[in-house]
Deep mutational scan, measured.
Amino acid sequence: NMTTNERRVIVPADPTLWSTDHVRQWLEWAVKEYGLPDVNILLFQNIDGKELCKMTKDDFQRLTPSYNADILLSHLHYLRE
């Protein structure tokens, strides 16, 4: 019986294949993992993996503070390698 913190996010390895639900799961995981403040996951609700991967730093900064944008982008970049 796992707690929420221990729950593994199971999403496709390639972020471009993510559904909007996968994006939400990834964001929820990242918020907990990195202790990100002020991430409004609802702002990302219509973004799927293909859109997420096209987003620039400016795009991320429209949805979340700069600090969060940096961490989310670097993790996304890591996943795409």
Results as ranks from 00 to 15, higher is better:
33 E>I: 05
54 K>A: 07
18 W>A: 01
53 C>F: 04
64 T>K: 02
36 L>G: 02
20 T>G: 05
1 N>R: 09
68 N>Y: 03
18 W>D: 00
65 P>K: 07
29 W>P: 00
2 M>V: 03
70 D>W: 03
39 V>L: 14
42 L>S: 12
22 H>V: 05
1 N>S: 08
76 L>A: 03
34 Y>H: 09
4 T>N: 10
69 A>K: 03
27 L>E: 00
44 F>I: 02
12 P>F: 02
47 I>A: 02
27 L>H: 00
48 D>F: 03
71 I>D: 03
32 K>W: 06
67 Y>H: 13
7 R>I: 05
32 K>H: 10
19 S>W: 01
70 D>L: 04
32 K>M: 12
23 V>D: 01
56 T>K: 14
63 L>V: 08
12 P>M: 02
24 R>V: 11
11 V>K: 13
41 I>Q: 07
36 L>Q: 01
19 S>M: 02
39 V>S: 07
78 Y>I: 13
27 L>N: 00
27 L>M: 06
56 T>S: 14
44 F>M: 06
27 L>A: 03
16 T>M: 12
9 V>T: 14
73 L>A: 13
47 I>G: 00
36 L>A: 02
31 V>R: 09
64 T>S: 06
11 V>W: 15
49 G>L: 01
28 E>Y: 08
20 T>E: 12
75 H>R: 15
49 G>R: 01
52 L>P: 00
24 R>Y: 05
26 W>P: 00
28 E>I: 07
34 Y>V: 03
50 K>T: 12
70 D>G: 09
54 K>C: 07
60 F>G: 00
78 Y>A: 15
78 Y>R: 15
78 Y>Q: 15
78 Y>W: 05
40 N>V: 03
20 T>S: 09
10 I>Y: 11
47 I>S: 01
62 R>F: 07
65 P>S: 13
26 W>E: 01
48 D>L: 02
29 W>N: 15
79 L>M: 15
18 W>S: 01
45 Q>P: 03
72 L>Y: 01
75 H>S: 11
31 V>E: 06
33 E>N: 09
35 G>Y: 06
66 S>L: 04
76 L>V: 07
56 T>E: 09
56 T>M: 04
3 T>I: 11
25 Q>S: 09
6 E>P: 13
38 D>L: 01
10 I>W: 08
76 L>M: 04
22 H>Q: 11
68 N>A: 12
31 V>G: 06
77 H>G: 15
57 K>G: 06
15 P>Y: 04
73 L>Y: 09
45 Q>M: 08
32 K>L: 08
36 L>I: 09
64 T>V: 10
32 K>N: 13
76 L>P: 00
14 D>P: 00
54 K>Y: 07
76 L>T: 01
25 Q>K: 11
70 D>E: 14
15 P>W: 02
53 C>S: 06
6 E>S: 07
63 L>F: 08
20 T>Q: 09
64 T>M: 12
61 Q>W: 07
8 R>H: 07
31 V>L: 03
64 T>F: 13
67 Y>V: 12
43 L>A: 11
14 D>E: 03
23 V>E: 00
59 D>T: 14
28 E>H: 12
20 T>P: 14
34 Y>R: 05
52 L>N: 00
8 R>N: 13
18 W>P: 00
4 T>Q: 07
57 K>F: 06
69 A>M: 05
81 E>W: 03
15 P>S: 02
21 D>G: 10
61 Q>C: 10
52 L>E: 03
33 E>Q: 12
15 P>N: 00
55 M>L: 11
17 L>N: 14
51 E>Y: 10
64 T>L: 10
19 S>R: 06
77 H>C: 15
50 K>L: 09
77 H>D: 07
31 V>D: 02
36 L>T: 03
53 C>R: 03
68 N>G: 07
76 L>R: 00
56 T>R: 08
79 L>G: 05
6 E>N: 12
48 D>W: 00
66 S>F: 10
50 K>Q: 11
80 R>I: 13
24 R>L: 11
73 L>I: 10
55 M>V: 01
5 N>G: 11
37 P>C: 12
16 T>W: 07
28 E>L: 08
10 I>P: 15
59 D>H: 04
80 R>W: 04
52 L>Y: 00
63 L>S: 02
2 M>C: 06
73 L>S: 09
35 G>K: 13
77 H>L: 08
52 L>K: 01
65 P>C: 13
64 T>D: 13
42 L>W: 10
59 D>E: 08
10 I>H: 15
71 I>S: 06
38 D>I: 01
44 F>H: 03
51 E>K: 10
50 K>G: 08
22 H>L: 02
64 T>Q: 06
34 Y>K: 09
14 D>A: 01
59 D>R: 06
33 E>D: 12
76 L>S: 02
65 P>A: 13
7 R>K: 12
25 Q>H: 09
2 M>D: 05
70 D>R: 10
70 D>N: 06
55 M>S: 00
47 I>W: 02
80 R>L: 15
43 L>D: 11
